[in-house]
Design a protein around this nucleic acid. Structure first.
Length: 226
DNA sequence: GCGACAG
DNA sequence: ATCTTGTCGC
């Protein structure tokens, strides 16, 4: 409700933290098997933040578990500082999961960020787990020439400060989603995972987390049943 | 200084 | 993100 109060930590300090954590990001595949994928998202209800972590089996995309966490939103939304708003509540939801997770998919950017540390990467480093970032709108960077892959998938690399930081991926001529490495995964694998879990505009794990966190925030018990 | 800007 | 109903279209 009121974020106007002076923060005890300056944005310059937070920027320094991002630069530090960005050095720890690993852009290579660091997982042997791919059985479960967990979608992550946060919804808001006035000044309350609700996070949902929903795990699905990669084969068939069937939901096998969902965990929630809620708290007051202590940090405002400030472009390029999203992780400081959502990482705490997402960590809380993830800790409540019981089933093993191989890769996390977050509704946020990974290294597709002006300082190469979007919320998906920030979370990945804190969890020390593989994460992929996916968004519906471009935060930064310039798109290179689109490339049509075999399965009718169109991919356009995105460059940030001279580095390929992500890719615009679109299927069946739909509006693209922006994919980037979060942590411990390669861009190639990140794109593959998104394409293989894409039923609608957003990959299924994230779409589910979005629906569930929103239902939880609005107290829709019925939707949360199954 | 100006404009852009994930959720 | 959120405030919000019906409605146009594949």
């Amino acid at each position: 409700m009121e974020y106007g109060k002076p923060r005890r930590v300056s944005l310059e300090k937070l920027r320094a933290i991002q630069l530090k954590l960005a050095e720890k990001v690993v852009e290579e595949d660091c997982f042997d098997r791919l059985e479960n994928i967990c979608g992550l998202d946060v919804s808001y209800k006035e000044d309350k933040a609700v996070a949902c972590a929903v795990t699905v089996r990669f084969e068939g995309l069937r939901k096998i578990e969902a965990a929630f966490a809620s708290s007051k939103a202590y940090f405002p939304y400030i472009p390029t500082f999203l992780s400081f708003r959502e990482t705490p509540i997402l960590m809380k939801a993830v800790r409540r999961l019981r089933e093993k997770v191989d890769v996390f998919m977050v509704d946020a950017n990974g290294v597709l960020h002006p300082y190469f540390l979007g919320a998906a990467s920030h979370l990945g480093v804190l969890l020390d787990k593989p994460t992929v970032g996916v968004t519906k709108k471009l935060l930064c960077g310039e798109l290179l020439e689109p490339r049509r892959l075999e399965s009718g998938v169109t991919m356009a690399p995105i460059v940030v400060k001279g580095r390929i930081a992500g890719a615009a991926v679109s299927v069946r001529g739909l509006k693209p989603v922006y994919v980037s490495v979060g942590h411990k995964v390669s861009l190639e694998t990140a794109v593959r995972l998104v394409v293989e879990t894409l039923r609608n505009r957003m990959p299924e794990p994230i779409r589910l987390a979005h629906t569930l966190s929103r239902a939880y925030a609005r107290g829709c018990q019925q939707t949360l049943r199954t």
